[in-house]
């Protein structure tokens, strides 16, 4: 990643904050002490802007932070008050999907779109290294790593990309107010569902055994629900309402309860999942939830010729009652 780009982002944001165009800016900052991780950060004054960062270790979907119970967007009382926000390609799809469903006020956002180089799965990288990372740098083709024991190494970044980035269709944001170009942007793939078809051509029993052996590790911590930008039911979520959930779901982590929870989660996302891969990223047990989300994306495309989050006008097919309404879209 070119450091000039970060400077460019900072300059732009600082200018916007100083001129009063935006009230605050939501971006990323480095986590101190742990190289290769980042966390969301809200810059409220021009001085805060220096803490901002953007690199391929910025993995969170910031649109999630604008919804209901996890609302970190500051209050914008004035009519013209805006919040600056940094979005990657996949985040922009979540933004458009939430706008289409009326859950996000696009008018209140000043969107800085960044061309995405793909994000690095740092956990997978750490697991393969003999010692811990002291410094890590991503130059667009390689990861330059210095280890705590003094060794240095160069690794191919393509091998450590998040799964969602391997078949990414939208590396350039679809909707933005200000675009930051990047020479290391990934080339979008056009055949993003090819591997889903390959996977689905396997025998059913094999697929079933594979996913259920992974799901058996689930502890029902609900990280996949809470990280999902399309899950905005908040305290109305059936899993959070003991009275409602009791007949449905006993809290113990038996396989049938785990499957029940994941069915509820992914059935409600069936027509709305944008494939941003946040659930897969958030899962502490590394369950390959991308198998489910990509199957949903494939279903949307083949059955309804619909892709969630590609425009802020199209309504999800299951929200429409009549058949004709889909055909028009």
């Amino acid at each position: 990643m070119n450091s000039n780009i970060l400077e460019y982002i900072k300059e732009t944001v600082k200018e916007a904050l100083e001129s009063g165009k935006i009230k605050a800016f939501l971006g990323y900052t480095d986590v101190e002490g742990i190289p290769g991780t980042s966390r969301p950060y809200l810059a409220e004054t021009p001085e805060d802007v220096d803490n901002l960062t953007f690199n391929s270790f910025c993995r969170q979907n910031l649109i999630r932070l604008g919804g209901g119970k996890t609302n970190y967007f500051p209050e914008l009382p004035g009519k013209k008050d805006k919040l600056g926000i940094m979005v990657k390609g996949c985040d922009s799809r979540s933004m458009l999907a939430n706008t289409a469903e009326g859950k996000l006020d696009r008018e209140k956002l000043w969107v800085v779109g960044v061309a995405c180089p793909g994000t690095i799965n740092i956990e997978r990288l750490r697991a393969t290294l003999p010692a811990e990372i002291k410094t890590i740098k991503d130059d667009g083709t390689n990861l330059q790593i210095e280890l705590v024991n003094g060794d240095g190494m160069k690794l191919d970044r393509e091998e450590y990309l998040d799964v969602r980035c391997l078949n990414c269709k939208v590396t350039k944001p679809l909707d933005y107010n200000f675009f930051i170009p990047n020479d290391t942007m990934r080339t979008p793939t056009t055949h993003n569902f090819e591997w889903v078809e390959q996977y689905q051509s396997k025998a059913f029993s094999e697929r079933s055994e594979f996913i259920q052996s992974h799901l058996a590790r689930c502890t029902l911590c609900f990280a996949c629900r809470d990280a999902c930008p399309a899950c905005y039911c908040n305290e109305n979520c059936i899993m959070d309402r003991p009275k409602l959930a009791e007949p449905f779901l006993h809290k113990s982590n038996e396989l049938k309860n785990i499957l029940m929870y994941h069915f509820i989660h992914y059935y409600h996302l069936a027509d709305r999942c944008t494939g941003c891969g946040e659930c897969t990223r958030a899962c502490p047990e590394n369950i390959p939830l991308n198998l489910i989300t990509d199957a949903l994306g494939h279903m949307q495309k083949t059955a309804w010729n619909f892709e969630a989050g590609m425009s802020d006008k199209s309504k999800p097919p299951l929200l429409l009652i009549k058949n004709e309404e889909i055909l028009e879209d």
Partner: peptide, 13 residues
């Protein structure tokens, strides 16, 4: 707590 999404990871693990 900025950015906390209120999941159960930190407590369950």
């Amino acid at each position: 707590s900025f950015g906390c999404i209120s999941c159960g990871v930190c407590t369950f693990f």
